[in-house]
């Protein structure tokens, strides 16, 4: 009661909601940073019946995205943020080689279900030119049980 009449002593910031909101924001950004896969380009992945596959490893991988251009054609390849033309796949070999030397252990190949195999094979051959024996993972849609 000693403080009655002194306005400055009545201002009490309630910290509880602020801490609640702060923790919610922390959780939100941690979760979002794990969900958003900056390596993956949006495309319609194949989903074979009774797939012999396991959940794709997210760490230590190089993701090679073969970007579709419609009607079975392919426009370009995206790997680690680099855009590689289908006419310059030697560049893809160099990038994959650098990433494998930098600690990556697997190469993940993402291609649209409708893309023609002739283009996919060109990319597989470019990866094969890396020289070592990289383990290739063919990425499929995991939604189907």
């Amino acid at each position: 009661m000693a403080s009655r009449g002194n306005p400055s002593s009545t201002i009490n910031a309630n910290m509880t909601p602020m801490i609640d909101v702060t923790f919610l924001l922390i959780v939100f950004f941690v979760v979002v940073s794990q969900i958003v896969d900056r390596d993956a380009v949006s495309m319609d992945l194949p989903s074979p019946d009774n797939a012999v596959a396991s959940v794709a490893e997210m760490q230590n991988r190089v993701v090679v995205n073969i970007v579709p251009a419609g009607d079975g054609e392919v426009s370009h390849v995206v790997v680690g943020g680099h855009v590689v033309s289908m006419n310059a796949l030697d560049e893809l070999t160099t990038i994959v080689k650098t990433r494998l030397q930098g600690g990556a252990t697997e190469v993940h190949l993402r291609a649209d279900r409708a893309s023609k195999y002739i283009f996919i094979h060109e990319v597989i051959e470019a990866i094969r030119k890396v020289g070592t024996t990289p383990r290739l993972q063919l990425v499929i849609d995991g939604k189907q049980e």
């Binding site: 923790f23 919610l24 959780v27 939100f28 979760v31 969900i35 993956a40 992945l45 797939a51 012999v52 596959a53 396991s54 959940v55 794709a56 490893e57 190469v107 993940h108 993402r110 597989i124 051959e125 990866i127 094969r128 030119k129 890396v130 020289g131 070592t132 024996t133 990289p134 383990r135 290739l136 993972q137 063919l138 990425v139 499929i140 849609d141 995991g142 939604k143």
Partner: peptide, 28 residues
Amino acid sequence: VFLLLIYFMVATEFKTAEESSPMDLPAQ
């Protein structure tokens, strides 16, 4: 309750992530 809700939504999303099929690639 909201934190738990977010946690389970996220966990469910992870379960349906992409899968991959391994292929040995002989060196050229």
